[in-house]
Design a protein around this nucleic acid. Sequence first.
DNA 1: CTGAAAGCGCTTACAG
DNA 2: CTGAAAGCGCTTACAG
Lengths: 334, 334
Amino acid sequence: MVTIGDIAKEANVSKTTVSRVLNNSSLVDENTRQKITELIEKYNYVPSTIARNLSKRESSTIGVIIPEIDNPFFGEMLRGIMDTMEQVGLTVMCFNSGDKKEKDMKALAILRQNGIKGLIYTPAIDYSGNEEQSMLKKWLQSLDSPVVVVDRELEFLQNADGVFFDNELAAYKATEALIQSGHKKIAIINAELDRILARERQRGYERALKEHNIEVNDKYIFLGDYTENKAYQLSKQCLNLEEKPTAVLTCNNNTTMGFFRAKKEIGIEDSEIVCIGFDNIKALEFFDINFNYIERSVYSMGKKAADLLLQRIKNPDQPRIKYIIEPKLVIKHI
Amino acid sequence: MVTIGDIAKEANVSKTTVSRVLNNSSLVDENTRQKITELIEKYNYVPSTIARNLSKRESSTIGVIIPEIDNPFFGEMLRGIMDTMEQVGLTVMCFNSGDKKEKDMKALAILRQNGIKGLIYTPAIDYSGNEEQSMLKKWLQSLDSPVVVVDRELEFLQNADGVFFDNELAAYKATEALIQSGHKKIAIINAELDRILARERQRGYERALKEHNIEVNDKYIFLGDYTENKAYQLSKQCLNLEEKPTAVLTCNNNTTMGFFRAKKEIGIEDSEIVCIGFDNIKALEFFDINFNYIERSVYSMGKKAADLLLQRIKNPDQPRIKYIIEPKLVIKHI
DNA sequence: CTGAAAGCGCTTACAG
DNA sequence: CTGAAAGCGCTTACAG
């Protein structure tokens, strides 16, 4: 491996001078610059980012922790992040937590040791306990670099920038649309309400019902954990009710899948029940399937998160920014 | 930020000694170890991986370049990679090429500057030109670390380890299954044959036809580029043929989507035409849709690729390993 | 058991 | 315009 020293020696100059041409300093003689450039070409030399960063006390990598790398939702988000990071020459160190908080912590530890410039973070789901919360907080602080939280808000972390979705409004709009087209028995398959996400969605659902004088009926409320399996079980319960709902709100894409799985298994006709889901499931577009959804550009969420992080890095003292994405309803069969 | 020097000073020992306890060296007095450990705790000190790596002339990160981060296919692969890398304490620097070879090159350049320990690489699709090929080869070599190629073989790169899929066999089996259930007019929606992937799949398809004495009919062969859009256009042509095929082989998941889009748009009944696709599309499982697929565990492909890379790093001189994943047919409606 | 010194591959005042 | 020297935060012979 050829280093700056090798080039310097061969060119009969100091490392300082080579460093200058590497960094496009103007104060180097045109002839020596020429000579050095040629040698760099000749040996196909590139400076070590590691060494440079260490010397400059800088970092050129940002960390990303997401819960499900193989969920296209997060894939798109990641694409948004990568696209903007690439533009500014930053490199992405990526971790998949699998929704396990232990993995979150582990990733945080490694990221810290790598001295990242900043973090984009979608937390694992289970930070309900006080102890875990303060632990996470401690880890995040010890990172000593800015973090922007995406999609899943942490109520005990009110000092970080964030990009979130207007879950309350989304659930409200969806429920309202169902009501307006005549539905009264509307179920919701959500997650346990210790998560902000779930709470907000629940709130929107209930508010819409109340405002239209429809009783909020516990038997139509199903709280799982946003996994397909749990949603499948709950959906079976839901679809086996004496008095079946005529519509259902599925609160994330895994939940939607679980719902459809149950529906197929029980053998319920597609026309019998209307579904509105959080987030589109692309493959379903190409079929006449009774599926409506709440749309949001996850790609933009990723981009926005990256932008926020860059802003924060540039200007550490700016007031906290919380960016809220607006929902859009896509209604096809209702 | 607290460094090894700070700890050393506070403990009245040398950096060497601190380094020793950091690295669990046995030759340090129990008392001083105790003292140092306490200080490390107290200051919540962690050593800088960057500095350590520079000093040891090592690297703890591997690079990954994939073409479509938001395609669940690659998401799963990435999960496989990350899972095993995490176990061995390696960190993943990830790039999304968007199937653009310029981005491949750019990523390669950055990876090189970061002195990665190894690379797992699924090339962008368009390395057909000689010039591009030798350029890529040069870049890969200048990386000066092992690379394992995944899913898309590069014929001009026969010295790298790889994890591939038995595309020929998969297409053969699928076509054969169709023939055996009575189909004779079988279309294929593939990609241009300058790609190995496409060529292999084409070969399997044609071989099955020939072995069963069915004419290979050009009008049933459609070569696109594995994007949904192109596949959609080709599918329209296909489905508008005078003499429609009764079955079709769609050669990747995007292609399958394009096919179904066209089918819906033209208004062809689900029962009119049988489809076998490369790779499952999960959401379709939950509906009675006329879809069969060729299954492979992409997660395992990722894991396998990671394993190969680790092996190669440990033992640079072992003979080249090429691992071939076997296809499995999942037939539901045929 | 411990430490001084040199080194990893860079950059950056500082002096000339 | 150029370079010697010190430094970034670590590790590693080497000597004691």
